[in-house]
Deep mutational scan, measured.
Amino acid sequence: MLDDRARMEAAKKEKVEQILAEFQLQEEDLKKVMRRMQKEMDRGLRLETHEEASVKMLPTYVRSTPEGSEVGDFLSLDLGGTNFRVMLVKVGEGEEGQWSVKTKHQMYSIPEDAMTGTAEMLFDYISECISDFLDKHQMKHKKLPLGFTFSFPVRHEDIDKGILLNWTKGFKASGAEGNNVVGLLRDAIKRRGDFEMDVVAMVNDTVATMISCYYEDHQCEVGMIVGTGCNACYMEEMQNVELVEGDEGRMCVNTEWGAFGDSGELDEFLLEYDRLVDESSANPGQQLYEKLIGGKYMGELVRLVLLRLVDENLLFHGEASEQLRTRGAFETRFVSQVESDTGDRKQIYNILSTLGLRPSTTDCDIVRRACESVSTRAAHMCSAGLAGVINRMRESRSEDVMRITVGVDGSVYKLHPSFKERFHASVRRLTPSCEITFIESEEGSGRGAALVSAVACKKACMLGQ
């Protein structure tokens, strides 16, 4: 009897593995994704193909990295998701002549009506938060230079001027797309009239992360975010950046690689679950690469896999709870928690219980395998993109072996128990001629924006502006 049951459990697990095998990517698959990513990057950089390229390769006008001589107080704003952060950054000489960066910050959550109302409502709310922060720190009387981390696709015309191309991540505030974001912020500050600010720089969160990590390690020339969304930036040779005049030196390019796949480059790798996630998203047909990796989508992918296993009578005796059938019910943090389970399955059992399920031991094991399959594919897909960037940098610099540091931020990278190990191992397999160091950014977005502002202020002083 026991043997029969054991055989049935083994057969069930084997069927589960057959279904989950769809998520496995072979090294040849990853090399294919990497080569296609490089081709799209090239198209994004070139003037004649930029418009139709899915990977936009947006110039950021960040050319210099901090040298350690900029000092002063800077205000930093960070808008990239449902939370908005205001930070005071003091850049100065530390002990023994070292450079020191001290920060104080406060988080504000953005109400739904500000995210989806008008641009005026959104930026009025942001300036209200700045006003509140300055009151708390008794700094209303000071006109501070301000660095703005704005983590949406922007076409820069200068370091302090950028046109919002399109909202992502659930934002829909009308009247912002096609307009200068810094102008919208300046107008809102003017409307309030109770404080003055000098907006000197606007950067993407990947750029802010790279600059913040450069402060720790001067070989950091790539910034990457794996959180709600997924994106990367890197220092490109100016001669390859056709959208900006000049051939000397390097400029940081914001790849906006989340949109890779929007022209069909990933079609052969998309599964039924991916198509369902895409169809029910706020932007169907867009940001397809990001939807395979980002935390906004990972939990939902797992939920759809679990429903398939229920329908195949391989999980929960073929019956799903009402909660499990509800879109968004299986949160991405559950994926991390399930994979963090120590082996007694308590954590998995508790999560499934909150979803109205009474799982068996085998159910718990199957749910864990589903989570591992989805998150491992995410790590491997992400590795193909980064390997594409790094191999490109090595080739354009004609280096036999390139040493490089990548600064990384984002909740999936930082909080998932195995993502970074799987990701690092896969990147290294795909970049055999590179020695890569990964560092995690601390308060990256805010500190990085302030350091970019410090560079901009120093330049302005040198130019006598």
Rank of each mutant, 00 (worst) to 15 (best):
R325I: 12
S453E: 14
N166D: 14
L75E: 00
Y273K: 03
F316L: 14
L144Q: 11
T437V: 12
D3G: 08
R422A: 15
S411P: 09
S340P: 02
V101C: 05
V226E: 02
T206P: 05
A378F: 04
V181N: 14
V200D: 00
D29G: 13
L271R: 02
M298V: 08
G385K: 10
S411Q: 14
S396F: 09
P66R: 12
G444E: 10
N283H: 11
Q38F: 04
S445M: 13
R368Q: 06
F84T: 04
L164T: 13
A450S: 14
L309I: 02
G193D: 07
E48S: 15
Y413I: 10
S280G: 13
K291Y: 14
C129R: 04
G175I: 10
L288F: 14
I110N: 13
R429I: 15
E9Y: 08
S398T: 04
S100M: 15
G249R: 01
K15I: 13
V427M: 01
L122C: 06
V305I: 01
G448C: 05
K142Q: 12
F419N: 05
G356L: 06
P66Y: 14
L184G: 09
V406D: 00
A282W: 15
G175C: 09
E9N: 15
F74D: 00
I293T: 11
F150A: 15
K142V: 09
K161Q: 09
N240I: 01
V335M: 09
S441L: 08
K15V: 15
E395T: 08
F269T: 03
S174R: 06
A10V: 14
R85G: 08
E196V: 07
S433W: 10
V89S: 03
E319Y: 15
M41L: 10
V199M: 12
M87C: 05
S280Y: 15
I19V: 08
G264P: 08
G80W: 10
V89I: 09
E242K: 01
S127V: 11
Y273F: 12
Q98R: 11
C382E: 08
E93K: 13
R377Y: 01
Q138N: 11
E112R: 11
R377A: 00
E112Q: 11
G80D: 15
L315S: 07
A114E: 02
M238T: 03
F195L: 04
D217S: 03
K459L: 13
E236R: 00
D267N: 14
E339R: 01
D42K: 15
S131R: 07
G183I: 08
S375F: 03
G92D: 07
Q337S: 09
P359S: 08
Y349I: 02
G446D: 11
G285M: 13
E322S: 13
E339N: 04
A384K: 00
G170N: 09
M121L: 13
E17D: 08
E52W: 10
S76L: 01
K414Q: 06
T149N: 15
E290R: 12
R7Q: 08
N204Q: 13
D365Y: 07
K102S: 12
C233W: 00
V226K: 00
K420Q: 08
Q106S: 09
E221D: 04
G178Y: 15
L144M: 12
C252T: 10
Y297K: 15
C457Q: 04
V241H: 01
V253C: 02
G246R: 03
S212K: 04
C129Y: 08
E272M: 06
M87I: 05
S280N: 13
C371F: 02
L58M: 07
K104E: 08
Q337R: 11
L355W: 08
R303C: 04
V101I: 10
G246P: 05
Y297R: 14
S411H: 11
F133S: 04
L307C: 06
P359L: 08
T116Y: 09
L20A: 02
D400R: 07
I225W: 02
A6Q: 15
Y297F: 13
V374T: 05
S418Y: 07
E237N: 02
T118H: 13
S398C: 07
Q239I: 04
S353T: 04
T255E: 09
S212M: 01
E93N: 11
G444N: 12
F152E: 13
D341L: 05
D198G: 01
I351M: 01
L185I: 03
K15D: 15
I159C: 10
H317N: 11
V452H: 07
P284D: 15
G444Y: 14
F84S: 01
S151R: 11
T49D: 13
E319C: 15
D247S: 07
V406G: 01
L146I: 15
V101L: 09
E120L: 14
F171H: 15
L355S: 04
S426Y: 08
K142E: 07
K169E: 13
L164Y: 13
T342M: 03
S127G: 12
K56M: 03
Q337N: 04
S411A: 08
A329C: 15
G94D: 11
I163D: 10
V367H: 00
M197F: 04
E237S: 06
D344Y: 08
D267V: 03
S383G: 14
V452A: 10
L134Y: 09
N179V: 12
R394N: 08
A454E: 11
I404H: 02
Q239W: 09
E331C: 15
L165I: 09
H50R: 06
E51S: 14
G193V: 06
R155V: 15
L47I: 15
G299H: 05
E421M: 13
S76D: 03
I351W: 03
E399M: 15
M41S: 08
G328A: 14
S383Q: 01
S76T: 02
F438Y: 05
F123P: 10
G264N: 04
I351A: 01
S174Y: 06
I436T: 15
T376R: 09
E435I: 13
H137P: 02
D73Y: 02
K420F: 13
R191H: 12
L415Y: 07
V33E: 03
V89L: 05
A384T: 10
Q98A: 05
T332F: 11
G388E: 04
K346W: 08
D365L: 07
A456R: 03
L88H: 03
R303H: 11
T206Y: 02
I19R: 09
S418P: 13
T431E: 04
V367E: 00
F123H: 03
T149L: 13
V310L: 04
H416G: 11
A188P: 04
M57E: 02
E22V: 10
I163P: 14
G227I: 00
M87G: 08
T118E: 14
H50C: 05
D409L: 09
Q337P: 01
V367C: 05
G249W: 03
R5N: 03
E216S: 05
L271I: 02
S64K: 15
Q465G: 15
S64N: 13
H137C: 06
M210K: 00
V154F: 10
H218R: 06
E157L: 15
G264A: 07
L309G: 00
L304F: 10
H137Y: 04
D278H: 14
Q239L: 01
S398H: 08
L355A: 01
M393L: 13
D311W: 09
G285W: 06
Q38Y: 03
I163M: 14
G193Q: 10
R369N: 07
A449L: 09
R192M: 02
A232L: 11
V310I: 12
C364T: 09
L146R: 07
R36K: 05
L357M: 02
F74P: 00
R428D: 11
R394H: 03
A10D: 14
R368E: 03
T118D: 09
E435F: 13
V62E: 00
K291E: 08
S445F: 13
S353V: 05
G261I: 04
R447A: 14
L184M: 07
S109Q: 10
Y125F: 07
E157F: 15
P111T: 04
Y125S: 07
K291F: 12
E265F: 11
I189R: 05
A387T: 09
I110Q: 15
V55E: 01
N180D: 06
E120R: 07
C220Y: 02
T361A: 07
G246W: 03
H424D: 12
L47Y: 11
T354I: 05
V86D: 00
E237F: 11
Q18F: 14
V277F: 10
